[in-house]
Amino acid sequence: MDVAEILSHHILDHHWGYSLGGVELPITTHTVTLLSVSVIMLIGLYWISKGGASTLKRLLTAGAEEYVTFIRDGMVLPNMGTEGKSFLPYFCTLFLFILLTNLAGLIPNMKTATSNISVNAALALCSGGLIVYCGLKFHGIIGFLKGFIPSGTPGWLVPLIFPLEVISLIIKVCVLALRLFANMLAGHMVLISLLLMIFIIGQLSAVAGVGAAIPAMGLEIFMTCLELLVAFLQAYVFTLLTAIFAGSVIHTH
């Protein structure tokens, strides 16, 4: 049994090999997951927004209102102030998109697109763009650039501090992508490794394999529950940190 091959098959993206007139179509397991999540979000949220008299519709509408209030009062307003209100739709979309993509990975035959660094890099780029846009919108180009220099910095230190502050912002955005990537990838690697443990021990002796199945499955259930928590936590952390960084650009000291 080639453990490395099974691990890579479980974790890496797979090209479906469709082409149109000789042009390879970018249809992979991750893009299909991303598109599914996007379509579900678009149709689902549109359906909820239409409202209705049925109990389910009213329940979903109340849930959606609660969700928006949670993002507004828990993340946007405390960190960005009232200036952040206009960016509320971005944060609501970001949290729900990351959450649903993370959760999609727990459905059998679906893949965790957030365990692909390219997907997370795109999300982080969007957040980075928002942070820069906030700075430019509220302070203008000169004010935004001035914000990189902490107050009280001696003039001779400015050429050193300015690039360091710019690099800090870039690294903060990179860290957003890497944290989500590492957490989601590691969780799924642990899940498949626990399952593989049964077969690895089973190769030594069938009885030992059956014996290993019981603790392995117990750990598997525990890890799946933990992954469920991580899915929520990482979506929360990504959104909250974006709000914190955007807030620090808006309210420079």
Binding site: S168, I171, K172, V175, L178, R179, V237, L240, L241, I244
Partner: peptide, 9 residues
């Protein structure tokens, strides 16, 4: 959360 991010940064 900001403090927890410092190590990774």
């Amino acid at each position: 959360l900001e403090i927890a991010t410092l190590g990774l940064q």
